[in-house]
Simulated scan of single mutants.
Amino acid sequence: MPRMWWVVGVVVLAAIFSAYLGWTAQRVERLHTRARSAERALDAHLLRRAAAAAVVAEQSETVELYAAARLALDAEPGERESAENDLTRQLQTISLDPADPAVRTLAVTSRRVVLARQVHTDLVRDALNARRRVFVRLFRLARRYPRPYYFDIVEPSLPDMPAIPVPTPAPPAEGVLPAQAV
């Protein structure tokens, strides 16, 4: 009878360990999928920023800015970081009119690049941390996923741009209860 408890204990421990491995494998997969999605979103925002910069360059007839925007739009994956850094440096050297709608679009897209880069960096860090765990390395749980890489660019900020106001919702009509109170 005492041997029976050992067998039951070993089976229970094996079940717990396999559940933990399954959970870890799902987490590794989820983190890599999210990092890939964040990379695609960052790429889309960078393309929008480069396109908006090209429009501003055409309007202001700034040849250097237009060239940097075209290089950022046409850059190969290995050259993308340096092209985006050149575009950021060009954007920081020119004076922009905040009343111009194209400049406002550029400012909005630049802010979105900052947010997308932050999300991408956080997810890559989490995926790389998951890859470093002992059981992930031991059982090679991350072998199916390409290693995510940081996208290292200069913080894309524009000089002397006032904050774009966010529209506030209109107050409810008199006699109408707000949705939260219902």
Rank of each mutant, 00 (worst) to 15 (best):
P2L: 03
P2S: 13
M4T: 12
W5C: 00
V8I: 15
V11L: 15
V12P: 00
V12C: 02
I16H: 07
S18R: 01
S18P: 02
S18H: 11
A19R: 07
Y20R: 14
W23C: 11
W23P: 03
A25E: 07
Q26R: 11
V28Q: 05
R30P: 01
H32W: 04
T33K: 11
R34G: 00
R34A: 07
R36Y: 08
S37E: 06
A38R: 03
E39W: 00
E39F: 03
L42M: 01
A44N: 13
A44Q: 08
H45T: 15
H45G: 09
L47A: 13
R49G: 03
R49N: 06
R49M: 00
A50N: 00
A50V: 02
A51Y: 10
A52L: 01
A53M: 08
A53L: 01
V55Q: 11
V55H: 02
Q59K: 13
S60F: 04
E61H: 11
A67T: 04
A67S: 13
A68W: 09
R70W: 01
A72F: 05
L73Y: 10
E79W: 02
E79C: 08
E81V: 12
E81W: 08
S82K: 15
S82E: 14
A83P: 05
A83R: 06
N85I: 02
D86L: 10
D86P: 06
D86E: 14
L87C: 12
L87P: 13
T88H: 09
T93Q: 06
T93R: 10
T93W: 02
D97K: 11
P98F: 09
A99V: 05
A99T: 08
A99R: 12
A99P: 08
D100R: 06
P101L: 02
A102Q: 01
V103I: 13
R104Y: 03
T105G: 14
T105E: 14
A107F: 04
V114F: 11
V114Y: 10
A116N: 07
R117A: 11
Q118M: 02
V119Y: 09
V119R: 07
T121V: 07
V124C: 05
R125W: 06
R125V: 06
D126T: 04
D126L: 02
L128E: 00
N129W: 00
A130D: 02
A130Y: 09
R131S: 15
R131P: 14
R132S: 13
R132F: 06
V134N: 08
F135L: 15
V136M: 04
R137F: 05
R137V: 03
R137H: 09
L138P: 13
R140G: 14
L141Q: 13
A142V: 09
R144Q: 15
Y145E: 09
P146I: 02
P148F: 03
Y150K: 05
F151T: 07
I153L: 06
I153N: 09
V154L: 14
V154H: 12
P156N: 10
S157C: 09
L158S: 10
L158C: 13
P159Q: 10
P159W: 11
P159N: 13
D160C: 05
M161I: 15
M161C: 12
A163Y: 08
A163P: 10
I164R: 12
P167L: 07
P169E: 05
P169L: 04
A170N: 00
A170T: 11
P171T: 12
P171W: 08
P172R: 06
V176A: 01
P178K: 10
P178E: 01
A179N: 09
A181E: 11
V182L: 14
